[in-house]
Amino acid sequence: MTAACLMTTYQPLALSFARGLGTRLWDQQGREYLDAVAGVAVTNVGHSHPRLVTAISEQAGLLLHTSNLYGIDWQQRLAQRLARLSGLDQAFFNNSGAEANETALKLARLHGWKKGIEQPLVVVMENAFHGRTLGTMAASDGPSVRLGFQRLPGDFIKVGFGDLTALDTVTREFGARIVAVLLEPIQGESGVQLAPPGYLKALRAHCSQHGWLLMLDEIQTGIGRTGTWFAFQQEGIVPDVMTLAKGLGNGIPIGACLARTSVAKLFTPGSHGSTFGGNPLACRVGCTVLDIIEEQGLLENAARQGERLLARLRVELSEHPQVLAIRGRGLMIGIELATPQRDLAARAAREQGVLLNVTRGKVIRLLPPLTLDSKEVEMIVRAIARLL
């Protein structure tokens, strides 16, 4: 197999998979691996779940696409389900997390336009990651993501993640132009960085006070990853806008932007759209994913197994000289190392048969399916301990 005809945007391991089932994958030679990456927080209900196989097969034989020129029943069903689960009111469906964040940024622009703000600003966080489009790159941080793409569109102000003092400073300086705050409840790509307790609640109050939109990127944290449907629910708040993707489709491309009615109605016919967004297949899969999580109690399992995995890692690794910190929530866990370990993912697969991800060069990121059990927790802990 040759990759000569592919653009060199990735550096994949010398490893390719032929099939998957639950938390396991098998390579072309038939070797089995425990998947602690889940396609980067995508296959939340596991690989080849029989309910999803049936839903995809049935829908493929019925209807794949009609476009949004017509009503789509599964799209309406999925929007209702997500609204009920989140406390938000309306949804727009597209094909990816980056597109969902672009939708949120357009809503922020319209919010400013309605208020008569000619040069609106959005507050974003240092070390954030929101996507690879030009707009979402501008909202993201990190020179490796942005290198070669300046000057990026959009007007953003970056503040430290979790730093309310910095927020007060930009409010005094730019408050008349600020229309929204966009952030991840837990920063994933920067190494599973958790905000201080109460930070989201303080942001909610600040945005309400100043008439800004609170926009949460739950692309990685959403759909049960942290032990609740959405991470914001653990702070007892509701945002104005939320974006989703990854786990919503379990591998079928789908993104969603949800908003309160007062914000959603800023869009009018023709002001936004997507050719493939919200097609019958993707939305039926989304509904089926929600069914599986509810029926199998996967929110509770993610919380329980996540606590177990964190506790076991801290017991086994806390005294290791390479380990600086172990943090996470639910089944979203980061192990920060003292020095870069860029070959660790390859070694984990080759030597231990466990798939893991290393982000920012030295943070082991664990994002296993929400179906993980206690024996598999021990397999992950044992594999990482041996590697280090």
Rank of each mutant, 00 (worst) to 15 (best):
2 T>P: 04
4 A>L: 14
4 A>H: 11
6 L>Y: 14
7 M>L: 15
9 T>G: 15
10 Y>F: 11
12 P>T: 09
12 P>C: 15
13 L>E: 15
19 R>D: 04
23 T>Q: 10
28 Q>P: 00
28 Q>A: 15
31 R>S: 06
35 D>I: 08
36 A>C: 14
37 V>H: 07
39 G>S: 11
44 N>F: 12
52 L>S: 08
54 T>N: 06
57 S>A: 15
58 E>P: 01
62 L>S: 06
66 T>S: 12
67 S>K: 02
72 I>D: 08
73 D>Y: 14
74 W>H: 13
77 R>W: 12
78 L>G: 04
79 A>T: 12
81 R>D: 11
82 L>C: 04
82 L>I: 09
84 R>D: 10
90 Q>N: 10
92 F>N: 12
97 G>Y: 14
101 N>G: 04
105 L>V: 12
107 L>M: 12
109 R>F: 09
110 L>F: 06
114 K>I: 10
114 K>E: 14
116 G>C: 13
119 Q>M: 06
123 V>R: 02
129 F>R: 01
130 H>Y: 14
130 H>I: 07
131 G>Q: 09
132 R>D: 13
135 G>S: 12
140 S>C: 02
149 F>R: 06
151 R>E: 09
153 P>H: 12
157 I>Y: 00
162 G>F: 12
163 D>Q: 13
164 L>E: 13
164 L>S: 08
168 D>I: 10
172 R>C: 07
175 G>P: 08
179 V>S: 05
183 L>V: 04
183 L>Q: 03
193 Q>G: 00
194 L>S: 03
196 P>W: 01
197 P>K: 04
204 R>L: 05
207 C>S: 07
211 G>I: 15
213 L>G: 07
214 L>T: 11
222 G>E: 03
222 G>V: 03
224 G>T: 15
225 R>H: 04
225 R>T: 10
228 T>M: 08
231 A>V: 03
232 F>Q: 09
243 T>G: 08
245 A>L: 13
251 G>D: 14
252 I>C: 12
252 I>N: 14
257 C>K: 03
259 A>F: 08
263 V>P: 03
263 V>K: 06
267 F>R: 02
268 T>R: 13
269 P>H: 01
271 S>V: 15
274 S>G: 05
274 S>M: 11
277 G>R: 12
281 L>K: 10
284 R>A: 10
285 V>A: 04
286 G>V: 05
289 V>F: 06
291 D>I: 01
292 I>N: 02
304 R>T: 10
306 G>M: 08
308 R>A: 14
309 L>T: 08
310 L>S: 13
311 A>E: 13
312 R>G: 03
313 L>N: 07
314 R>Y: 06
317 L>C: 03
318 S>T: 10
319 E>H: 15
320 H>Q: 11
322 Q>C: 03
326 I>T: 05
331 L>A: 02
331 L>G: 01
332 M>C: 03
334 G>P: 13
337 L>Q: 06
340 P>M: 02
341 Q>H: 07
343 D>V: 01
355 L>N: 05
355 L>Y: 03
356 L>M: 10
356 L>C: 14
357 N>D: 13
360 R>F: 02
365 R>H: 11
369 P>T: 01
371 T>D: 00
371 T>L: 01
376 E>G: 00
377 V>K: 00
378 E>A: 07
385 A>W: 09
387 L>A: 12
